[in-house]
Amino acid sequence: MIPVADIAAMLGRLMPMHLWLDCGGAIRSAGPTLRKLIGKAAQFDDAFEAIGGTSASRSVARLGSADRLFLRLRSAPQTVLRGRGAMLSADGTGGGALINLGFGIGLSDGVHRFGLTDQDFAPADLAMELLFLSQANAAMMGELSRFNLRLEEARVAAEAQALTDPLTGVFNRRGLTMAIEAALLGAGAPADPGFALLHIDLDLFKAVNDCHGHAAGDTMLKAVASKLSAETRLCDSVARMGGDEFVLLLPGLTDPVGLMRLARRIIERIEEPVRIGDADCRVSASVGAAISTGYDTIDAQRMQRDADAALYAAKANGRGGAVLAGPGRPQVPA
């Protein structure tokens, strides 16, 4: 016959989270790890609440025959242990129940809460592997999200590049198309403020290229782009369509008088001389304008065609003028 103390010691070594109850629900022995959780509790009912079960004093037999037990710690109700019980025969051990417990999925929290170490778990228990895996998982997710962030940054950069005119840094044709599509999203809604397009074509630009070289021409284009950006609001879009053609998309600017005042101001800004090398270079600009609220149904292509037609009309009137598309619109002479 093995002494009870030896049995308890052996159980403690093999099953550090075991619980040995007598017939009345008193704790005869508890594994060293379990003791860290339940303190000095002497009775099952002082330490645990059996989820879905009754108290141990009335049902040690039920604990001892359960295939799967869920026990909530009274000292830390967030922690639920799970386990299986076995009945002990009345002769020899004096009856009662032996229960082996484990953390289950709450392992990480439990380890943290009770300051456990790898020595607190039996090597056959997969606790360490579960901890390892959850931490490896977190590290992998971190690595993958860093990688995703890098891809995202590359995507944003590529997109910006695809929509930007490399010389001037303003939108290119594709960028403008996107901005117009965005403006059209709200078109037709009752609260839609509409928008205006200004097609701008530089006058005398060829002379800058011819007299001072292409580098000077490029400098002039950059200067015009920055003037256009300076004269417009953050919500406006500036685009270079290639050559010496620019387009402004102006959300909410549907008052013809205000729009033509802006066109006038832009032309004056562009006409200010630009110092390139040791020469003061001058260009001018002609502007064709179209306003979305002048249309029953907004068709961006038609608006652009009309703005182009207005631009040609302005050019035909002579340099430095602005024309608003559509009948009865005020014209700004050269």
Binding site: V111, L116, D118, A136, A139, S145
Partner: peptide, 11 residues
């Protein structure tokens, strides 16, 4: 080293 320390590298 403590097994209960938080994972390193978690985003």
């Amino acid at each position: 080293f403590s097994i209960s320390d938080p994972a390193v590298g978690a985003a």
